[in-house]
Write a protein that binds this DNA or RNA. Sequence first.
DNA 1: GTCCACATTTTGATGAGTCAAAAATACAGT
DNA 2: ACTGTATTTTTGACTCATCAAAATGTGGAC
Lengths: 223, 223
Amino acid sequence: MLPSSTVENYLKAIYLGAGALTPPSRLVPMGQLAGALGVAPGTATTMVKTLAESGLVEYEPYAGVALTKAGQKLAALVVRRHRVIEMFLVRMMGYGWDEVHDEAEQMEHVVSDRLIDRMDEMLGRPEVDPHGDPIPTPEGIVKPQPMQSLLTCPLATPVTITRVIDQDKVFLRFIEKHNLKPGESIEVEARDAASDSVRVRGRDEQRITIGTKAASKLLVQAR
Amino acid sequence: MLPSSTVENYLKAIYLGAGALTPPSRLVPMGQLAGALGVAPGTATTMVKTLAESGLVEYEPYAGVALTKAGQKLAALVVRRHRVIEMFLVRMMGYGWDEVHDEAEQMEHVVSDRLIDRMDEMLGRPEVDPHGDPIPTPEGIVKPQPMQSLLTCPLATPVTITRVIDQDKVFLRFIEKHNLKPGESIEVEARDAASDSVRVRGRDEQRITIGTKAASKLLVQAR
DNA sequence: GTCCACATTTTGATGAGTCAAAAATACAGT
DNA sequence: ACTGTATTTTTGACTCATCAAAATGTGGAC
Ligand SMILES: [Mn+2]
Ligand SMILES: [Mn+2]
Ligand SMILES: [Mn+2]
Ligand SMILES: [Mn+2]
C-alpha cells in the first residue's frame, strides 16, 4: 500500500525538520513537527505512533521522532519530487521562484516517478532546485553540501550565494530584488552583534544591511 | 471550501456519464455512477445526497442524479484540467496517448488554474485532447461537436476520424497500430449485422474489420 | 392485478485523520 | 527535594468516505 499524502507530509516534515534543528539532534520534537504540519500536538503524537507501527519512524515518547532507513528513503523521494517540480515550474513553465512552493506542495503527492524522471531529464538532471536546495537522487541520496551562512563565513572574502533556506514569498522577493539569489557573488563586509545585523556588498558595489536572522538563511560557498 | 478530490470525481463521473447514456437521458442512474467510480451502490447514494445538500446536483430517489448549473461548471473545469494535462503530457512530455489517463486522473485534482492556463498557452489553446475529446473553456463551456460514429456515418464516403471514446490502454494501442487515430482519413466500406462487424478502408488502402462495439467508439466527421 | 427480479436505499460499522481539553510528564530554578 | 511552566500524551468526539448486508421500492412479465 502506497503512502497517503498525509503520511508523505509527516515523513517530509521529519526529514526537513531534522536538518534544521538547533542544536542539531537526531530526534525531532513533537511540538516542532506539529507546528511544521499545522496540526494540533496530539494529532502529531497519534500519527507518529502509527508511523512507528509501520516501521517508518522510531518514536521515543517525550523525546521526539526520527526516520528509519525506510522512512528516510520515502521522505527523500518526496523531497526529490518537490524539488524537481519546483525546478520544472521555474525553468519550463515561467514561474517565479517565489511562486512554485504551493504548487509543488500539492503535486509532489500525485506525480508518477515516470513524469518526475521526464522532467528531470528535460532539465538536464540538475543537482539543486531554484532555491539551491539539493535534489535527492532517485535512490534517495543527497550529496552533503559543506556550507556556511552569511553569519559564519569569513569576512571581506568573496563568496557565492548557493542556497536560500526559506520558502516565504515576501522573503524570496526581497532576496531577488537585492540580487542575492543563488549564483550571485558577494562579500560580507561586517557583522555587528549589538545591532543584530550583517552588512553585505553585492553586485555593482551595492551595499545592504540585513538582520542576523535573515543572514542565517543565506548559505554561501567560498570562491 | 474547495471541493475534495472525491467530490470532483463524483461530479466528473456524472458529467461524463450523462453524455454517454443510452438512451440519452438527463438523469444518471446510481448503479451507473457507482460502477464508474468503483464504489458500492450505497456509497454513491450517500455521497449524492450530500452533494444535493451542497446544491451541486439534483437527486431523484430511485431515478438518478443530474448536475445543477453550479455542479456542471465545477465538473467541466475538472474535465478541462484533465484534458489539458493529457494534451500537455503527450505534446510536451513525450507520453503516448495510451499512457496519459492515469497520470491526468491524479493531477486534475491538484494543479492550479494558473498552471493549467500556462499549459494551455504553451499548447496553443487546443480545442481537443489527444483522444479528440473536447476541452471545456475556462468558463466551463464546450462547443457541441456534431458527430457520427463508424456505425452511423454514410457508407463509401470519405470521413475523418475525430475522436476515440475509450481510455483503455489496449484499445488505444490497437487503434494507433492500425492508423485509426484522430486526424486519419478513412471510409466505411461495409457493415454487417449478422457478423456484428464493420469493414473500414484506412490509410494506404489498408483494410480492417472491427466489431460494432469498437466501431461505436470511433467518431468521425464528413470531409 | 400479482409476483419476481433487480436496482436502490438504509443501516450499522470501519478506518483515516483531525481537534479541544484534560491528564501526565519532564525539567529548570530555587 | 519542591514547585511551576512548558511540553507531551491521553481521552472523547467529530468528519469524510467507504463497505456489507438487510430492507425497500420499481417496473416488467405473466
Ligand atoms: Mn518548496
Ligand atoms: Mn525549494
Ligand atoms: Mn483521460
Ligand atoms: Mn481524453
